[in-house]
Design a binder for these strands. Sequence first.
DNA 1: GCTTAATCGAGACGGTACGTCTAGTCTTTTC
DNA 2: GAAAAGACTAGACGTACCGTCTCGATTAAGC
Lengths: 201, 201, 201, 201
Amino acid sequence: MDEAAARGRKSIGAKRNPESADAIVKAAEAVLREAGYAGFSIEAVARRARAGKPTIYRWWPSKAALLIEVYQRQKRVETPDTGNIEDDLAGFLENLFAHWRDTPSGNIFRSLIAEAQSDETAAAALAEYSKGRRGHTGRMIERAKARGEVAADVDAGIVADLIASFAWRHLLAGRLDEDDAAIRAAVRYITRGIRAIPGKV
Amino acid sequence: MDEAAARGRKSIGAKRNPESADAIVKAAEAVLREAGYAGFSIEAVARRARAGKPTIYRWWPSKAALLIEVYQRQKRVETPDTGNIEDDLAGFLENLFAHWRDTPSGNIFRSLIAEAQSDETAAAALAEYSKGRRGHTGRMIERAKARGEVAADVDAGIVADLIASFAWRHLLAGRLDEDDAAIRAAVRYITRGIRAIPGKV
Amino acid sequence: MDEAAARGRKSIGAKRNPESADAIVKAAEAVLREAGYAGFSIEAVARRARAGKPTIYRWWPSKAALLIEVYQRQKRVETPDTGNIEDDLAGFLENLFAHWRDTPSGNIFRSLIAEAQSDETAAAALAEYSKGRRGHTGRMIERAKARGEVAADVDAGIVADLIASFAWRHLLAGRLDEDDAAIRAAVRYITRGIRAIPGKV
Amino acid sequence: MDEAAARGRKSIGAKRNPESADAIVKAAEAVLREAGYAGFSIEAVARRARAGKPTIYRWWPSKAALLIEVYQRQKRVETPDTGNIEDDLAGFLENLFAHWRDTPSGNIFRSLIAEAQSDETAAAALAEYSKGRRGHTGRMIERAKARGEVAADVDAGIVADLIASFAWRHLLAGRLDEDDAAIRAAVRYITRGIRAIPGKV
DNA sequence: GCTTAATCGAGACGGTACGTCTAGTCTTTTC
DNA sequence: GAAAAGACTAGACGTACCGTCTCGATTAAGC
């Protein structure tokens, strides 16, 4: 048990104690899982991790920074490669929704977005993170372009944006349990709109 | 000045004083405009409105309820009717982005979404509000269907969701200043994907 | 039941409604009995009496005024007349302690004294009331003087003060359940100190 | 000036800051002196001491606890030792009345008794304190017994009670300015009543 | 008989204080 | 010299009362 391990954890001298860092991130994740964003406070994390608040503030200057680290420790969602862009995107969204639904990741990411609305550093970190994910999703489109499935002049970034937007909104609106048919329909409208027209360059 | 008007505002008997209600909503809007979501507290609103905290709690059970009322007092965005679905949707998004950028509305709505991540009642209120807006946007699609511009089997709600998602994400990610070309491209991908195929029923 | 009677009690025109006054004093007494001084608020009395707060404030300008009226409605304690000063005083104190213990009177008088510590009018009313009681108790001493039991030069008021002081302190310190032996001992010390010396004028 | 000293007072690490404790008790005393019991609130004390409310609640769980500490910081009243019980007790009461009249102590003790009427912990604390004082006064009686001035079978505690009761009542009834003759008369009645009878064992 | 005027229950009003919670900073002690 | 611990000021939270005010109804008294 985390808390048992933490009992009596001491300074290990003039260097960062990795046990403490670990305990703090684990505690933050546990708090988010159990109490959600509403109950997520530095105070609560410190209590749970049996750490002093200054120890947290020393390494994570804000709630946002801690949220980001917690989120990045979560497992990433796989981007399928079925050879068909519609199946790829729909599969990705279905995986993502399931992941957000079944692990604390959803709560954590929701929290991060919320925090970014009143915290500059969270906003910056979120922007940075999003850029990376955009490239990641974009590669699915690029692969489809290479296969001649998607028109060459389509902006992969914008398509990735549409997909990510759809995911965000369902997360933030608490609509992750929507049935797969709706996801497929949305994906179909987009993929139809970007497919290469046979016979056209 | 509002505060001057507030001086000496009293009860008007065993019924709600509309002057107080008005002063509170106006004060809430001012606080949001000047201090942002981070500085938005019931306490601050009460101070600014020269109202007692219980008066606020009496009528708005949560911060979220107050935010919603403030947001709904803002001017609505027009949904154009150009006779062309792509122009309609792109125009709507351009108007919406400009509205969110140039008035406090954007900040208020951002705050509301953030609040909904940790407050059940805010989430419920937001869901309710979104449902209304979804129908509103959906009508643009339905008109296009009636014109034969959009396929009859397209689910207008899902298209409206895609549009709203795109807007939310740009608001929450601080990307409202993106150029109109990106908006148009996104809209084009969707509208192409849902257009009626000539000669097909 | 009081509250049932109160349902639908209305104005009886341009004069004080004695039913309301009665209901308010009764409600005040009930609140003091059930919740003590800590729970005694104008708000609570109004709720219990199904009366409007202004109706209370119209007739009793302060909590203290209401307390005074409630106290004065209580039954007074009898001063025995056994023909023996020690028995008279001890009997009186025993009766008084029992009365304070077994009826709301004790709580009410405690409250009145407490209120008088921060409210001028309560202090004045209490002083007035005390003066009356002092005379009352003093008469027991005067009777004993007349019988030649107590020295003629004894100040009856001061003896009455000593007796009242003893009672107040036991009330305020929550020591009303002290056994009668202690009361008798205290009374004996005083009566011995004031008795007439045989053979002396 | 106290408040100037308070400016910028900070934590001195993981232990109680005596400067803060001191500032709080001093502020409490000042508030009582200036605004009386009616104006005595934790909020007011915190403001005056430039302390956070939680700092007060951390160390004094209730208004009563703070009152007791403030009272105990006041100078104690001397118990004279003249070799004569009547002079001892009368002198003590005269000193006590003067002390209560001329320093904030009287107001503080009044407040404490009032608070005890609606607060259990205050009542308990007051009882504890009274027990100590009872012993203190009781020693005057015991000394007189040892001198053979007071009968051996007299209960010193009860005599101490009579003296304390007399003092409480005069404090609570705002009669501290009574002339010394009344005090002496009261004391005389008691001391006469408890004196040893010459020739009796 | 009609108007007037005081009273009633009701409950909203601006406020103050309550006791709790968290934020972010600071310092001592321990390793 | 960092970690741990916990105290510090500051201020928001949501609730309970305060004493005042206005309402609409009710009804006795005065015209």
